[in-house]
């Protein structure tokens, strides 16, 4: 638990520390923003980016690749030919986007990757994202603490297995659990970030292991499916109830915050979206004006919070505001 609070402190420090970039005057700057897809978390990211770009007095040209690497490449090429000053992209294919980033930079346009890191970080002008590994590790350490040395059966729902966040949120959870042989991962269910698959996976795992003690839901949208199953089996019980199943989730959306406030999940790790967006925009503007970007890549760990400190932490969690 102490480590979790250390993470809170570190994340809070990151949020309040001055960034490496100062938002320069950007009246004539248009930033091309290319998203891999549109879903609730991306909607929140788009809003955070829009706010950051408006605050910098720049303009935004937005495109959604809708889970298609080829479409994303075409959209970015079009933006470049239309004369945008910089690109901020959430890549759909973390391999294919390396070439896209290199060709964009070769055309004299800075390429900033957001949220999803490319397989080769040297391809981009700057990367800013969450730290899926740190988040997975915090989740793993929380489960170790919750198990307290006793036998503990854990269901691990997985996001996209061809996706950096999905892979590292899973791998680093598993690494953290290696120190606890009392914890058994009874199933690792690939869901491709689909709540329906999260529901089916939870239903099947509970069928095989009625004594399931924990569920790792590495993105908030999975929670609704998980809750549906637990409710049907009379297991949707608040934190503190002896039959409560320990749940850890990641994202920090309004849905996740509500689940924490309702005491339905034990730990939520909120991605620092506004700060990520602010740094991405500042780097894009600075690079478009010829400035040097250092460091070239930054990974911001999520902010852990739970039912006992949600009130105190709410101001730092984007999903708890409003």
């Amino acid at each position: 638990m102490r480590k979790a609070y250390l993470q809170i402190g570190l994340a809070a420090a990151l949020l309040t520390a001055p960034t490496a970039f100062d938002a320069a005057s950007a009246k004539d700057i248009t930033i091309g923003v290319s998203f891999d897809k549109i879903e609730p978390f991306r909607v929140a990211e788009k809003k955070a980016l829009t706010d950051a770009i408006e605050a910098a007095h720049a303009k935004m040209d937005f495109a959604n690749a809708d889970k298609d690497a080829q479409r994303q490449a075409s959209q970015v090429d079009t933006m470049v030919s239309q004369g945008v000053s910089a690109i901020i992209a959430i890549p759909w294919d973390i391999e294919a986007a390396n070439d896209l980033a290199r060709s964009t930079i070769a055309a004299g346009i800075p390429f900033v990757s957001l949220d999803q890191a490319l397989s080769d970080l040297k391809s981009v002008t700057y990367h800013i994202g969450g730290d899926p590994c740190a988040d997975g590790k915090v989740a793993g350490e929380f489960f170790v603490k919750a198990a307290a040395g006793k036998p503990f059966k854990l269901l691990e729902l997985q996001g996209g297995l061809a996706n950096d966040n999905g892979i590292r949120r899973s791998r680093c959870l598993d690494d953290a659990l290696k120190a606890a042989p009392n914890i058994t991962i009874v199933a690792q269910v690939p869901t491709d970030w689909n709540p329906q698959k999260a529901l089916d996976g939870t239903e099947n795992a509970l069928q095989a292991h009625p004594d399931l003690a924990g569920i790792y839901a590495p993105w908030n949208d999975a929670l609704q499916g998980v809750f549906s199953v637990l409710k049907a089996k009379n297991l949707l019980l608040p934190v503190g109830d002896p039959k409560h199943i320990t749940i850890v989730s990641i994202d920090g959306t309004p849905l996740g915050c509500k689940a924490v406030r309702d005491r339905l999940i034990d730990l939520e790790i909120a991605t620092p979206l506004p700060e990520m967006s602010r740094r991405a925009v500042a780097a894009a503007i600075k690079a478009s004006q010829g400035g040097k970007i250092e460091p070239q890549a930054e990974f911001l760990p999520g902010i852990p919070y739970g039912p006992d400190n949600v009130k105190a932490m709410a101001s730092k969690i984007w999903g708890c505001q409003g």
């Binding site: 879903e39 609730p40 709540p195 499916g225």
Partner: peptide, 16 residues
């Protein structure tokens, strides 16, 4: 059926 079971309408509903 999918929405009834999960309890949400999300952008990925029916995807794939």
């Amino acid at each position: 059926i999918l929405v009834g079971r999960v309890g949400v309408v999300n952008p990925d509903l029916g995807y794939g």
